[in-house]
């Protein structure tokens, strides 16, 4: 069980958090203009890397705020956390 550093509350137990999958997948500006393939890609297809992954978390049992994190899906180590409006930071 991990400690997840909520950018607003500090490190908290993993059980307080809700996982939200890949980050930086914007809702399409004009869904009506998309082909079925493009729309399906938005609805169902997400990256699934083995390694650093920019993903969304919500501190559901805490401040209830969403944030983004870069986490290594092999070690589960959190390499960075940042606010939803920030760019993905460079991690090593």
């Amino acid at each position: 069980m991990q400690l997840i550093p909520c950018p607003w509350c500090g490190p908290r137990e993993e059980v307080e958090f809700h996982y939200g999958g890949q980050a930086h997948v914007a809702y399409p500006a004009e869904p009506a203009e998309l082909s079925d393939e493009e729309w399906a890609s938005f609805v169902f297809f997400r990256d699934n890397p083995r390694g650093p992954f920019a993903e969304r978390w919500s501190h559901a049992a805490g401040c209830r705020r969403w944030f983004n994190a870069v986490r290594d899906t092999r070690s589960y180590e959190l390499l960075a956390v940042y606010r939803p409006d920030q760019e993905r930071p460079v991690t090593t």
């Binding site: 069980m1 993993e14 999958g21 993903e55 899906t73 092999r74 589960y76």
Partner: peptide, 11 residues
């Protein structure tokens, strides 16, 4: 969460 670590959380 996504994970390739072949381990999960104890809770």
């Amino acid at each position: 969460y996504n994970g390739y670590g072949q381990r999960g959380s104890f809770h």
